[in-house]
């Protein structure tokens, strides 16, 4: 039987692949989005910044910032799922193109508070061309969502379909 790879090798490969997606997108850097990885499970993090406020009276997060956070989480999750097998096979996945958003519907369930927000995406269907993704976002309590969204995405076309 083949010996398992050393844990650092695995972690380094996966973290590098994930960072290549995040660092390649200026808007992700501008917004300060982070992603926490546990195996193949990703949690998006939108660290609080004053510029994210949309209602200074309450104060509450801007709906546009929340929308951008959810959409980014969906795209990163899709890209991550798309690259996982290739990455594990040792292929260079740092040059893969990102899926494109076709439509995105956001449901604002309660005001976003001035603190960090978290999001997780579920791929409900992923075909060769189209994918449907659901995203849930929360702040203090995982079960008290402040926003959720569903979107459809156009998958990047690769030269070879393996």
């Amino acid at each position: 039987m083949k010996r398992p790879e050393p844990v650092q090798v695995i972690k380094q490969r996966r973290d590098k692949a994930l960072q290549s997606v995040l660092q390649g997108v200026p808007y992700i850097q501008f917004m300060g989005f982070k992603f926490d990885r546990r195996g193949d499970e990703l949690t998006g993090i939108m660290p609080y910044q004053d510029m994210l406020i949309g209602n200074p009276m309450l104060p509450a997060l801007h709906g546009g910032a929340t929308a951008a956070f959810l959409e980014t989480t969906a795209i990163v999750e899709l890209s991550w799922a798309m690259m996982w097998d290739r990455m594990e096979d040792g292929e260079d996945v740092t040059k893969l193109r990102l899926p494109k958003t076709i439509d995105f519907t956001i449901d604002y369930l309660r005001a976003g508070l001035p603190r960090d927000a978290y999001a997780r995406a579920t791929i409900n269907r992923s075909g060769r061309r189209y994918a449907s993704v659901h995203v849930e976002a929360w702040q203090d309590n995982r079960t008290r969502l402040f926003a959720q969204a569903t979107g459809h995405f156009l998958m990047p076309q690769t030269d070879t379909n393996t």
Partner: peptide, 27 residues
């Protein structure tokens, strides 16, 4: 704005920034 780019290969603005503009304008 280069900070809002979503695809560095093409320089296209990220959908999230367009969403924020549409949301603000609607409000």
């Amino acid at each position: 704005d280069l900070r809002l780019v979503g695809d560095p290969e093409t320089g296209v603005i990220h959908g999230g920034a367009v969403s924020a503009l549409l949301d603000t304008c609607a409000g």
